[in-house]
Design a protein around this nucleic acid. Sequence first.
DNA 1: CTCCTACCTGCAAGTATTCGCAAAAGCAAT
DNA 2: ATTGCTTTTGCGAATACTTGCAGGTAGGAG
Lengths: 146, 146
Amino acid sequence: MPHCHTSIETLRRRGYRITPQRALIIEAIAHSCRHMTAEEVFARVQQRTPGVNIATIYRTLDFLVKEGLAHRADLGSGQVIYATIQHGPHIHLVCRQCGTVIEADEQLIAALRVQLQQQYGFAADLQHFALSGLCRDCQERFETEQ
Amino acid sequence: MPHCHTSIETLRRRGYRITPQRALIIEAIAHSCRHMTAEEVFARVQQRTPGVNIATIYRTLDFLVKEGLAHRADLGSGQVIYATIQHGPHIHLVCRQCGTVIEADEQLIAALRVQLQQQYGFAADLQHFALSGLCRDCQERFETEQ
DNA sequence: CTCCTACCTGCAAGTATTCGCAAAAGCAAT
DNA sequence: ATTGCTTTTGCGAATACTTGCAGGTAGGAG
Ligand SMILES: [Mn+2]
Ligand SMILES: [Mn+2]
Ligand SMILES: [Zn+2]
Ligand SMILES: [Zn+2]
């Protein structure tokens, strides 16, 4: 997954500085096919270059999200997860009762995306996000208990 | 807004104990027509009954969310906001570049709600939530900068 | 009204993340 | 290669929650 270079070039073109820390962090999330927590990125970066500070990890991940090169999602697990924009698009359905996570197809929100753009001029980040609610089992439990 | 009683009765019916702390917190969010942060709920509760701990505020607000009696939304302001389910349904569109918040009509996600229920048996909490993205101005800025 | 016990709360310590500031280092222009 | 300006980083402290645990209390049984 050599998408690191794409991201790095994009940032350079936009006038940002490419520091070793940024390159390492971009490489870390580009090489993971899954989501990563800030701590996981930190551990991987430390392996190669000890001395990078955890605050830099957080700052850089947030910077990449702001630049549209990474996604952030809070599934309510206590730690936020990050992924590259290459991470296949999908929605996480998180049950607020039991914590179960269902992965849903992002096609579901294709229509919503178009409407938000047309009615509000808002380009929503819907490639990778979390929705809270009740899973089937917990709905049934709620109904029987009233 | 005497919805406190409805919430209290619901909880009692479900077998939970009604402590003075819970009653105060329920009353606090029921009387505010807006969102409240945990700190704001804390301040209001303290006025009436000093001694209630901030941990109880957080635990109770999360408990109310889990029981479906309150909504929680993270608009990225640094503090999570809570509101009763009476709070009129709407979506917050939060720009990840400039932080601007647009309030959008929840009708936009009526179709999504139905699809999630049919395809995944998931009852999504879509009355009051936040979507991240780019506002019109920031989109234009991004395009000109490439 | 009193007792019992599971559920709740206060407290203090822990975790995840953010922020202010001074020093370090990209990178563009000499 | 050197300089200079501005961005970025490291560090330590602050913030916004969260958790473990021991003692307190709501509310049902007797
Ligand atoms: Mn995912
Ligand atoms: Mn709102
Ligand atoms: Zn569930
Ligand atoms: Zn914007």
